[in-house]
Design a protein around this nucleic acid. Structure first.
Length: 306
DNA sequence: CACATAATAT
DNA sequence: AATATTATGT
C-alpha cells in the first residue's frame, strides 16, 4: 500500500526542500527582539506594540503550521514517511484536530511563563542553540496526536507490567521497557491508571464475568497470572521471581532517537491479531522479559506499525 | 520531581 | 468512549 504513497511523499519532500532553500537566511530577518514597526510609527497610527516573541514562540508556530499541513495532505501516512527536516517527530497516531491559536492566551499565559531575558551574548548564543536545535525542544513543544492503544501496544504494556509486578511498576519504567518510539510517560501513566481501575474492577467483580464492552481492549490481552489478585490477599507479588536481573538500562536507545519516521497508522482497532511476540524483524534487539522470565526481544517499534 | 488518584476536559 | 490534562496529596 505504501509504494505509491512513498513516491508522492518523496516529491513533497523535495518541494519542501526547494521551498526551504528559498527562505531568507537568518541574517536577512529582523531580529525577534526588534519590533517590525518603529515606535514612532506605531504611536502615530495608534498601533499597540506587540509583545516580544521568543524562539519558542516561533518554533511552536512552525510546528503548528507543519503539522496542520501534514494532516491536511496525508492524514493516514504510514511508516515510509521519513522525515521533514527538523521538527518532524511524531510517530504517533493522528486522530484529529490541531488548532492554531496564536493569541488566545497572550499577555496572561505568557506573562506568567518564563520569559527569559538574555543578558550576555554568550547566554544568547547558548539560548539560541538549545532553542533552535529542533527536536530536543520541539519534542516537548509539538502537540502530539493522541495515542491509540492498539492491542499490540497494549500487549507490550501488559508484558512489561507483568514482569515488574503491578505493585511496583511506575510509568517511566514501563515507558522505557516498552521501547516504543514516541511514547511518553504521560501516555503510559494515563493508560496505567485506567488499567489499574480495570484490574480492580475485575477483581472485586467477583473475579470473572463478562468484561464490559468498554473493556474490549483490556480483554483482548489477558491479564497475566502475575497480575491477578488471588482472591483477596496474599498480594505479595511473591511470584515472578524476576529471574533476570534488572537488565542494564543502557541498552535501550529508547524514545529520543531521531528515527524520524512520522509514521501514522490508521487509528482504529482494525484487528486483533493476537500473535504473541510476532515481531521478528531483526532490528535493534531491545530486550525485555516475558511473563515466563524468558528474555524476549522487543524491537524498537513505533505505535501501530507492528 | 515522579507518582497515584480522582475529576474533568477534549 | 478513549485519551489527555489538571488538581491534589504523597
Amino acid at each position: 500500500m505504501s509504494d505509491y504513497e512513498g513516491h508522492v511523499r518523496d516529491g513533497d519532500e523535495e518541494r519542501v526542500f526547494e521551498w526551504e532553500l528559498g527562505l531568507p537566511s537568518a541574517d536577512d530577518l529582523t531580529p525577534l527582539s526588534q519590533p517590525l514597526i518603529s515606535p514612532e510609527l506605531a504611536s502615530a497610527f495608534n498601533i499597540s506594540p506587540e509583545r516580544c516573541r521568543s524562539m519558542i514562540d516561533v518554533n511552536r508556530a512552525s510546528h503548528n503550521t507543519l503539522s496542520s499541513l501534514r494532516i491536511q495532505t496525508e492524514p493516514f501516512s504510514s511508516n515510509n514517511f521519513k522525515s521533514l527536516p527538523s521538527f518532524t517527530r511524531d510517530p504517533l497516531v493522528v486522530q484529529g484536530d490541531d488548532e492554531l491559536d496564536p493569541e488566545n492566551s497572550t499577555e496572561e499565559g505568557l506573562g506568567s511563563r518564563k520569559v527569559r531575558r538574555i543578558e550576555s551574548t554568550e547566554e544568547a548564543d547558548s539560548a539560541l542553540r538549545t532553542e533552535n536545535s529542533s527536536y530536543d525542544h520541539s519534542a516537548r513543544t509539538l502537540k502530539r496526536p493522541r495515542l491509540v492503544w492498539t492491542p499490540q501496544l497494549h500487549k507490550r504494556f501488559v508484558d512489561v507490567v507483568a514482569h515488574l509486578g503491578i505493585k511496583n511498576v511506575v510509568p517511566k519504567t514501563i515507558m522505557q521497557l516498552m521501547n516504543v518510539d514516541g511514547l511518553t510517560r504521560e501516555n503510559v501513566a494515563s493508560h496505567l491508571q485506567k488499567y489499574r481501575l480495570y484490574l480492580k474492577r475485575m477483581q472485586d467483580l467477583s473475579n470473572n464475568d463478562a468484561p464490559s464492552s468498554s473493556d474490549l481492549l483490556f480483554a483482548s490481552t489477558p491479564v497475566p497470572p502475575s497480575l491477578q489478585e488471588s482472591s483477596g490477599h496474599g498480594h505479595g507479588n511473591g511470584h515472578m521471581p524476576l529471574p533476570m536481573p534488572a537488565p542494564p538500562v543502557m541498552h535501550m536507545p529508547i524514545v529520543g532517537v531521531a528515527h524520524g519516521h512520522g509514521n501514522v497508522g490508521v487509528a482504529a482497532y482494525n484487528g486483533f491479531e493476537s500473535h504473541p511476540y510476532s515481531m521478528f524483524r531483526d532490528q535493534q534487539q531491545d530486550w525485555s522479559i516475558n511473563k515466563f522470565g524468558a528474555i524476549v526481544s522487543y524491537p524498537h517499534v513505533t505505535p501501530n506499525d507492528n
